[in-house]
């Protein structure tokens, strides 16, 4: 690199006194611009995103926007479970949570569950706002979530395409 410190001296000599002090600016990670921080958060797996949500209000806000959900989704590699009934089919996915829905024949409602791969723990979600799946039998749609906090990754549209839908 070609830089000459003497030029600086010359500069000071010519314009001495008028230059201002170095703007130190706070180099804390909190002061990173929002779009950069969103980018960083979106590179994390769901569990880390959750941890980050507890770190600082700003991060909680950033990771709650629809923009962030889209960003995170874009980085996700969807895993199709196809006909698999069990969410534990995907091996080596310990960082992921899977989301599966089932049809409850008693009250004729669809239920959604999030499964943790590491345990048998599951948690029922609140009723799902989108309802594109009526034509499918409960287990036909292996719903996959990476992240699983905000989003369902999946569903076949009428044209047979993949689409992504947000949970929250």
């Amino acid at each position: 690199m070609y830089y000459f410190t003497w030029i600086n001296d010359l500069w000071k000599h010519l314009f001495g006194g008028s230059y201002k002090q170095e703007n130190t600016g706070d180099a804390s990670i909190i002061n990173l611009p929002n779009d950069i921080m969103s980018d960083i958060l979106s590179k994390l797996l769901a569990k880390s995103v959750l941890a980050c949500r507890q770190v600082h209000p700003q991060w909680l806000y950033l990771s709650s926007t629809p923009y962030f959900a889209d960003l995170h989704l874009m980085r996700v590699t969807p895993i199709l479970l196809g006909q698999e009934r069990t969410p534990f089919a995907g091996k080596g996915l310990s960082d992921y949570k899977l989301l599966l829905y089932s049809f409850n024949f008693c009250n004729r409602k669809y239920c959604y569950y999030i499964y943790s791969l590491s345990t048998t723990f599951k948690r029922k979600l609140r009723s799902f706002p989108y309802f594109p799946l009526v034509y499918f039998s409960p287990y036909e749609v292996g719903v996959v979530a990476s992240g699983a906090l905000f989003w369902i990754v999946r569903c076949i549209t009428n044209s047979g395409d993949w689409s992504f839908r947000r949970m929250l």
Binding site: Y2, Y3, T5, I7, N8, W11, Y19, E22
Partner: peptide
């Protein structure tokens, strides 16, 4: 910003 010059 602190007025150093770099020839690049």
């Amino acid at each position: 910003s602190d007025n150093n010059l770099f020839v690049v």
